[in-house]
Amino acid sequence: MKSEFSFQVRWGDTDAAGIVFYPNFYKWMDDATHNYLAIIGYPSSKLFAEHQIGVPLLEANCMFKRPLLFEDQVVVESFVEELRNKVFKIKHEFKKEGQMVAEGYEVRAWTSFAGKPKAQPIPNYIRELMVSQVEILEG
């Protein structure tokens, strides 16, 4: 399952040179992950309110290929690249006018917040929604 998250670069996203300040890519990856969960039918607010489940970040990385500027239109294509028992890796491809400008990933843990936070196995009904384009790994 692949999702798309679109936005326009705002003035406040840029530095003094008019180029997007790099931490914004990490913010947009977070936004794109929550968008992905909503598209598969499990928005973060519903997961937490109904199941006390969250997906805290364990690792993030982003490689920058071309700059983004104020008012650029951006599409982030996201998909789960690896799926483990309790953890998933979601890849994000940033595109402007169809050209890749950056790519990154996040590693997140399926976590219960009922009591002390603890990683839980990702339920099979959620896994089935994530499995296209995924390398399933043991562990």
Rank of each mutant, 00 (worst) to 15 (best):
H92F: 11
E71Q: 15
A114S: 14
G139T: 04
Q52W: 02
V76L: 08
V74Q: 08
Y125P: 01
F70M: 09
V74K: 11
W11E: 14
V101A: 08
L83W: 04
L57K: 12
S112I: 09
N24V: 03
P121M: 00
N124T: 05
P117Q: 07
G115H: 06
E138Y: 01
E138Q: 14
I90V: 12
V76H: 04
K89A: 10
E135L: 13
A49P: 00
L47C: 12
L137W: 08
Q73T: 11
K2E: 15
E103K: 06
V76S: 04
S132D: 15
Q8A: 12
F113V: 12
F94D: 13
E82F: 12
W28R: 09
D30S: 08
E50H: 08
Y125T: 05
W28L: 11
L58W: 00
G115R: 05
F48T: 09
R10P: 03
G54L: 08
E106F: 03
R84F: 14
D30H: 13
V134H: 00
A109H: 12
F70W: 05
A49L: 13
E81C: 02
T14N: 12
V9F: 07
L47Y: 03
G104S: 00
P67V: 03
E77Y: 13
N24Y: 13
E97H: 06
